[in-house]
């Protein structure tokens, strides 16, 4: 009698655990991600950017007009897989919002965990000296898997430079030169002043996006909407952004 009970109980426990595993796993898979309540709006992060932060490398790599309503400043590490995942999303953001948004790219290689991150940053800057920063930036992100595990990524960077039609000798010299190093370091100093400790870190009009990378576009659009609503009464504003805002709000 006792034996029968004993043989049924373990099977019941195993069954319960199996159902729980399938149930919990399936629920998170369908509803969203573990650790985040589905449908919960992202809290607006506090502005933690100090006013006296160093300006970063000069020239600043940016896309979009300097008077754009929203500036998105990204601190990235070329060897960080998440930065590579976000790369097409940033491009989509720029394509969708056009001149209403300005994208600023800052170097923030995580030298402690990524062997080639700093060299990759230097490669992009060296390409920038020959006017091909964004082309190299795209090349580094899209080929990240190839060079990340390479025993000498610098050889691959030189190949990319050749593909982009750069002067490879100049590129290789610039990559190890002080000018490029100083520029990367200047960006990193700005990042440290911003308390950047992970990549990619985005700042939307100086407000940190935080860990909610999926929310980037939603947060930028929310910021645009907020600014457009604030600008609406000033109908005589002569800035291009305010005009765009008014045109949109009249639709």
């Amino acid at each position: 009698m006792e034996n029968t009970n004993k043989s049924g109980l373990p099977v019941a426990i195993i069954g319960v655990v199996l159902l729980a595993a399938i149930g919990i796993g399936g629920w998170f898979l369908l509803k969203g991600k573990p650790g985040s309540e589905p449908g919960t709006p992202t809290p607006t992060p506090k502005n933690t950017v100090p006013a006296n932060a160093p300006p970063g490398g000069n020239p600043t790599w940016s896309l979009g007009p300097s008077n754009a309503a929203v500036t998105v400043e990204e601190f990235a590490d070329f060897q960080c897989p998440t930065c590579a995942q976000m790369h097409p999303k940033v491009k989509e953001l720029r394509a969708a919002l056009g001149d209403r948004v300005r994208i600023v790219f800052r170097q923030f290689p995580l030298t402690q965990v990524h062997q080639w991150g700093y060299d990759a940053a230097c490669a992009a800057e060296a390409a920038g000296l020959q006017g091909k920063f964004w082309e190299m930036q795209n090349m580094l992100f899209t080929n990240q898997q190839s060079w990340s595990n390479s025993p000498d990524a610098r050889k691959l960077f030189a190949e990319y430079a050749k593909t982009l039609g750069l002067d490879v000798n100049k590129f290789s010299d610039d990559m190890i030169g002080l000018q490029v190093k100083n520029k990367v370091d200047a960006d990193m100093q700005r990042g440290r002043a911003f308390n950047v400790n992970s990549t990619p870190s985005f700042y939307i009009n100086n407000k940190p996006l935080g860990q909610n990378l999926d929310q980037l576009r939603a947060m930028v659009e929310a910021e645009l909407k907020k600014l457009e609503e604030a600008n609406q009464p000033q109908s005589n504003s002569n800035t291009a952004n305010a005009n765009t805002a008014n045109a949109n709000s009249n639709k």
Partner: peptide
């Protein structure tokens, strides 16, 4: 499976 994005940080290379 969700393709969830977690930032890279200095304490670990989980994403890598």
């Amino acid at each position: 499976l969700n393709g969830e994005m977690v930032p890279c940080n200095v304490t670990g290379g989980c994403e890598t």
